[in-house]
Computed example of a mutant assay.
Amino acid sequence: MAKHVLPIVHPPLYGLLSWAYTLSITSSMPNFNPWFYSNFIQVCCNKYYLEDKQELFFDFYRGGNNELNHNPFLLSSTIDTPMLYEIFKEKLHPFLTKKIQEGVYPVLFLDEYHISYTTAYHAYPFPHHVLVYGYDEDRQIYHTYGFGKDLLLGYHETTFDELEQAFHSIDNYLKNNAIYDQHNYFFTLLPHFVYSLNIRLIYEQLGEYLRSESSNNDQNRYFSPDKEFLAFGIACYDHLIEHFYILDHHPESLVRANPPRQLHLLWEHKKMLRNRVAYLQKENKFPQDEGLLLEFLELEELAHHSRNLYAEHVVKGIPQVHEHIKHNLERMRDMELELIPKLMDQLKRHTELLLPA
């Protein structure tokens, strides 16, 4: 076939591509929302980031090291880069086009230094995953999805030559031990997969979020050996607040500060909380409560304001921005300590929950 394009949509979460890529493939599925709103409740951060000289990494938590293997609507195959290179170094293109024709979505580990729509293009090496969802033989391009020079997630075109160069470059880095391999993924959609809304799981995760713990005892999650090094749930606010204090008073002690990503992911979490309440009300899991929904909307708007305020600070410079955001984080934490028990009480009173005795 001269060209073939697989369907994707803009995902509901996109702060990290580990969520965005799989959600872009599956979020238009008929049974997607029951699974989506039954999950993506818990969050985590690396609480020893200062001692370990790491970036403070804040994200949704679904069981640890299961990046790109967390979505039940997808059949996933993983190939490490040295093996992929050894088998297909001279014939990657025929392999990719065959997979796409079969309905498989490749997510390749590439060096974005060679990908022209990225900020890294001819500027600096940047090993990263790239979703390939189609190709056009006549135009000699792949259809790819990712962050562009405008820092927005979108649809792009990558020439066959660019992708080949990016593939060979990654192999060179690995041979020189300059990076560690993050593997290549191949996703096949499971169109008949059915998932029912899991109220018990929602209730349990909300409780664990408030208690700042993660049991990892559900089939929807995976065991993580790194669990003891992570802070969970509401306790993440302590580390975010600390981080913005350090940005103000001791920025030299931070290996890499990345407030835009942290604040964007924080906003996505609050957006999910608000959307989940709206979805549960729509599904009649508890009575319509406009007041509760408005309170969660206020929480989301505070997170959104914080994200946008810092983005404005990057461009213009805003006095006392770190102190302002620190105050917002403290307020969000206090709001959640009131709102989440309210939500749990609504679920418990109006739903037959299969909770342990």
Rank of each mutant, 00 (worst) to 15 (best):
N71C: 15
N71I: 04
P72A: 04
P72V: 10
P72Q: 09
F73K: 12
L74R: 10
L74N: 10
L74Q: 04
L74V: 10
L74G: 04
L75E: 15
S77P: 00
S77C: 12
S77F: 14
S77A: 14
S77H: 14
T78R: 15
T78L: 14
I79V: 15
I79A: 03
D80I: 06
T81I: 01
T81M: 05
Y85H: 13
Y85E: 08
Y85F: 15
Y85K: 01
Y85T: 04
E86I: 00
E86M: 02
E86D: 11
I87E: 12
I87R: 07
K89C: 13
K89A: 14
K91Y: 02
H93M: 08
P94E: 03
P94Y: 08
F95E: 11
F95K: 14
F95D: 01
L96E: 08
L96W: 04
T97G: 06
T97V: 13
T97D: 03
K98D: 08
K98S: 11
Q101A: 11
E102H: 09
E102K: 15
E102F: 00
E102D: 15
G103T: 04
G103S: 10
G103L: 06
V104K: 07
V104C: 14
P106G: 05
P106H: 10
V107H: 07
L108E: 06
L108P: 01
F109W: 12
L110H: 04
D111F: 00
E112C: 11
E112A: 13
Y113Q: 03
H114W: 12
I115L: 13
I115H: 07
I115M: 03
Y117T: 11
Y117N: 10
Y117W: 15
Y117F: 15
Y117G: 08
T118V: 05
T119H: 01
A120R: 00
Y121T: 08
Y121S: 13
Y121R: 01
Y121E: 12
H122A: 11
H122I: 00
A123N: 02
A123G: 00
Y124A: 13
Y124E: 12
P125C: 00
P125G: 02
F126I: 00
P127W: 03
P127V: 02
H128Y: 12
H128L: 05
V130H: 14
L131M: 13
L131Y: 11
V132W: 06
V132K: 07
Y133K: 08
G134W: 07
G134S: 09
G134N: 07
G134L: 07
D136E: 06
D136L: 07
D136Q: 07
R139T: 08
Y142P: 00
H143K: 15
T144D: 08
F147V: 15
G148E: 03
G148I: 01
G148K: 06
